[in-house]
Amino acid sequence: MKKVALILLLLLAGLFIYTSFDLPPTNDLNSPPAAHVSPRYIEMAHEETGAVNMVTAVLADYRGYDTLGETTVIFTAGISCLLILEARRKQKRNKRGGR
C-alpha cells in the first residue's frame, strides 16, 4: 500500500515537473498574474481605497467579501469546536451522574 502510493506519488512528481515548464517562471515580470488584474491594485489602490498597503486594500476592499468569508471560517471553527467538545462535557457529566 505504502509502496504503491510512493511509486504513484513519484510519477505525480514527474508530472508536476513536466508541466511546470508551462507555468510562468518565477520572478517573471510579464507573467499573466503580474500583467492581468493585479496592475490595477498597484496603480489605483491608494487613489481608490485610501490604503497605502496594497495587500490591505485588496484584502479589505477589492476582495473584502473573501475576507468576510475568511472571518466566517474562523468563527465557524470556533463554534464547531464548541459543538464538538461541549457535547463531550455534557456526556461525561451524565455518566458521572449515572454512577
Partner: peptide
Amino acid sequence: EPKVRALGTLGIE
C-alpha cells in the same frame, strides 16, 4: 471617498 473607504476598512478590521 477614499477616506471613507479607509474608515470602513478600519471598521471591518
